[in-house]
Design a protein around this nucleic acid. Structure first.
Length: 427
RNA sequence: GGAGAGAUGGCUGAGCUGGCUGAAAGCGGCGGUUUGCUAAACCGUUAUAGUGCCGUCAAGGCGCUAUCGAGGGUUCGAAUCCCUCUCUCUCCGCCA
């Protein structure tokens, strides 16, 4: 949620940000008008309530010293006021609700340094591990490799649930678990605190991170329980401190969590229908930071570097892209995508997305901090990034480490997590 | 799933026979006095949000409004009475 004061004082800035994202800017004008309507109604209601309160006090006095006629007069006047108050409050509520609805559609302000552009093509490479290496033999897509090795089973996934669900078998399941363990160990060593959160989350939680907006209706919900299956641990980790006022001395809060994630992938029909890239259920190790505003930029680089270090340790070719304004997520003001090279697709694919959300999520989550014991609370800043997406890392290993004989070598750093297994070989 | 108890400010905890109670008291925090330093003692101060006016902006000042788990109701007036919901705790049952 963007700052209502900013909207009031500098609507032009909000408008510019929407245009940079390639979106329509009329919600800004709607919001300004509704805000004015809301303020007028609130002011009126407050004035009426003040009068009513004064009358109540007078009533208490009159009860001791006044006549029955006085009491009756006060009672009647107060009843009249009550009706006026109700009308003003109704008007305020209506305006407020309409305003909320408009504000929910306005994405975060784009950071100045974010490159212009409307889509993926305009993203700018920040750095890379170098040009992708020449393949050793004929590259194959991971679904073929996985089937050859008997470690990926999409048919049975569909049997158990439906399409876009998969079953990992044997060494595949083990490799996946090893990746989780490896990621967590490295993240802990980097100073992040491990969290094991609920996977089902309530409406307030998904609203806070911006996942409920009309631009990202991607969630599964649980009928009858008013809960959602979390689409990313970002939701849980950011909401850990919802409605809290943290001491600056406790910041930054650095969290990492391994969780399953669930996404409808609505609107992705026909995209990545084969393989592990785009599943309804997937696993991810997430990083989240809650910090003071002046720490955000540094932490953004740190989270990105942490995710990058995992790719380096695994020896996977990658590049890091600064997303352009048009490609930025709803809650993000600046994002780096980490893309891993997939020889089977001859393409780089997203394996982590590291975003600086500024105070956008904190405002909705009412997540604040105090810079000093007596200072006024201010909204914290939140950042998030995957380190890393487990399924996609598994894909990258299968495709990058496949040997001409059909086996897949296990990256050195993972072997301790797999009882020393050095390769997955065809049965 | 059944039975009962409860939810008040950073914390503990009064108030709950409805009317200066946004809320006692204690602790904690902050500022100060005292002190060679520390501690103790003493004094003062200490919730959050919204909004109006003043201030060229800002810092700030002066008001008003709301909030005692959430939402509704009764009443001239609700932390206090009634209803619904959520959550927490205790006991019983069931269960990974």
């Amino acid at each position: 949620m963007i700052d209502r004061n900013l909207l009031r004082e500098n609507p032009e800035r909000v408008r510019r940000s929407l245009l940079r994202r390639g979106l329509d800017a009329t919600p800004v004008d709607e919001a300004c008008a509704l805000d004015e309507r809301w303020r007028a109604a609130v002011t009126r209601a407050d004035r009426l309530k003040a009068e009513r309160n004064a009358l109540s006090a007078a009533f208490a006095q009159a009860k001791a010293s006044g006549t029955p006629a006085d009491l009756e007069r006060l009672r009647r006047r107060s009843n009249e006021l009550a009706a006026e108050v109700a009308a003003a409050e109704h008007e305020a509520r209506e305006a407020e609700r309409a305003l909320e609805q408009v504000l929910e559609q306005i994405p975060n302000l784009v950071a100045d340094e974010v490159p212009d552009g409307s889509g993926e093509e305009a993203n700018v490479q920040v750095r890379s591990s170098g040009p992708p290496p020449a393949p050793a033999g004929t590259p194959k897509p991971h679904w073929d490799i996985g089937e050859e090795l008997g470690i990926l089973d999409f048919e049975r996934g569909a049997r158990l649930a439906r399409s876009r669900f998969a079953v990992l078998v044997g060494a595949g399941a083990r490799l996946s678990r090893a990746l989780v363990d490896f990621f967590l160990a490295r993240n802990l060593a980097a100073g992040f605190t491990e969290i094991n959160p609920p996977i089902l989350v309530n409406r307030e939680s998904v609203a806070a991170t911006g996942h409920l907006s009309k631009f990202s209706d991607q969630m599964f919900s649980v009928d009858g329980a008013s809960l959602y299956l979390s689409p990313t641990a970002e939701v849980q980790l950011v909401n850990l401190h919802r409605d809290e006022i943290l001491a600056a001395s406790d910041l930054p809060k650095l969290y990492t969590a391994y969780t399953p994630c669930f996404r409808q992938e609505a609107g992705a029909a026909g995209k990545d229908t084969r393989g592990l890239i785009r599943q309804h259920q997937f696993e991810k190790v997430e990083l989240v930071a809650v910090c003071e505003p002046n720490q955000a930029a540094t932490l953004h680089e740190r989270i990105t570097a942490q995710a990058e270090s995992l790719l380096q340790a695994l020896g996977l070719p990658y590049r890091i892209m600064a997303l352009c304004a048009g490609d930025l997520g709803f809650a993000s003001r600046k994002t780096y995508d980490l893309e891993v090279w997939l020889p089977g697709q001859k393409a780089y694919r997203e394996i982590s997305s590291c975003s600086d959300c500024g105070d956008f999520q904190a405002r909705r989550a009412n997540l604040r901090f105090r810079s000093a014991p007596t200072a006024r609370p201010r909204f914290a800043h939140t950042l998030n990034g995957s380190a890393l997406a487990v399924g996609r890392t598994l894909v990258a290993i299968l495709e990058n480490y496949r040997q001409p004989d059909g086996s897949v070598v296990i990256p050195e750093v993972l072997r301790p997590y797999m009882q020393g297994l050095d390769a997955i070989r065809p049965a």
